[in-house]
Simulated scan of single mutants.
Amino acid sequence: MLIKTVIILMLILIIGSLFSALTFLYKDQGKGERTAKALTFRISLSLLLFILLMLGYYFGLIPEKGI
């Protein structure tokens, strides 16, 4: 149950970061660094989620049949 919560929380954070980058892009009109930082944060979260999924499968927290 904990792994499901972590996965959903990470996905919400990834989507939130994506929308914040869109907001920064609109407000700064492509001239600021905030968009790049938000997208870098999103990529970092995506990689972290991927690593957590792989570790969860390896240690048996995620069964072979899925969550």
Results as ranks from 00 to 15, higher is better:
1 M>D: 10
2 L>T: 01
3 I>M: 11
3 I>S: 00
3 I>T: 07
6 V>L: 15
6 V>F: 02
6 V>G: 00
7 I>H: 05
7 I>D: 05
9 L>C: 06
9 L>I: 04
9 L>D: 11
10 M>E: 04
10 M>A: 15
10 M>H: 02
10 M>L: 14
11 L>K: 13
11 L>N: 14
12 I>D: 15
12 I>E: 14
12 I>S: 11
12 I>C: 14
14 I>F: 04
14 I>R: 03
14 I>G: 03
14 I>D: 03
14 I>S: 05
15 I>L: 11
15 I>Q: 03
16 G>F: 09
17 S>T: 11
18 L>Y: 08
19 F>G: 01
19 F>S: 10
20 S>P: 00
20 S>T: 15
21 A>S: 15
21 A>R: 03
21 A>L: 03
21 A>E: 06
22 L>A: 10
22 L>R: 04
23 T>D: 02
23 T>M: 07
23 T>H: 02
24 F>Y: 14
25 L>W: 02
26 Y>I: 15
26 Y>T: 15
26 Y>N: 06
26 Y>K: 09
26 Y>D: 10
26 Y>V: 15
27 K>S: 04
27 K>V: 07
28 D>I: 06
28 D>G: 03
29 Q>S: 04
30 G>Y: 06
30 G>P: 12
30 G>E: 12
30 G>M: 09
31 K>D: 13
31 K>W: 00
31 K>H: 11
32 G>L: 04
32 G>P: 02
33 E>S: 09
33 E>F: 13
33 E>D: 14
34 R>E: 06
34 R>T: 06
35 T>W: 02
36 A>I: 11
36 A>V: 13
36 A>R: 12
36 A>N: 09
36 A>D: 08
36 A>M: 13
37 K>F: 10
37 K>C: 05
37 K>S: 06
38 A>V: 06
38 A>P: 02
38 A>T: 05
38 A>G: 05
39 L>N: 04
40 T>F: 12
40 T>V: 08
41 F>M: 03
41 F>S: 09
42 R>Y: 01
43 I>N: 04
43 I>W: 05
44 S>E: 03
44 S>T: 14
44 S>R: 07
45 L>R: 01
45 L>M: 10
46 S>I: 09
47 L>M: 11
47 L>Y: 10
47 L>S: 03
48 L>E: 07
48 L>T: 01
48 L>K: 01
49 L>E: 01
49 L>V: 15
50 F>Q: 02
50 F>Y: 01
50 F>S: 10
51 I>W: 03
51 I>K: 00
51 I>V: 12
52 L>N: 08
52 L>Q: 07
52 L>A: 14
53 L>G: 00
53 L>F: 12
53 L>K: 01
54 M>V: 07
54 M>D: 08
55 L>N: 00
56 G>Q: 10
57 Y>E: 05
57 Y>L: 09
58 Y>C: 05
60 G>Y: 08
60 G>T: 10
61 L>V: 08
61 L>Y: 06
61 L>W: 04
61 L>G: 08
61 L>I: 07
61 L>F: 04
62 I>G: 13
62 I>Q: 08
62 I>H: 05
62 I>N: 08
62 I>M: 14
63 P>K: 06
63 P>V: 11
63 P>W: 04
63 P>S: 02
63 P>R: 12
64 E>T: 15
64 E>Q: 11
65 K>S: 15
66 G>S: 11
66 G>K: 12
66 G>A: 09
67 I>G: 07
67 I>D: 02
67 I>N: 02
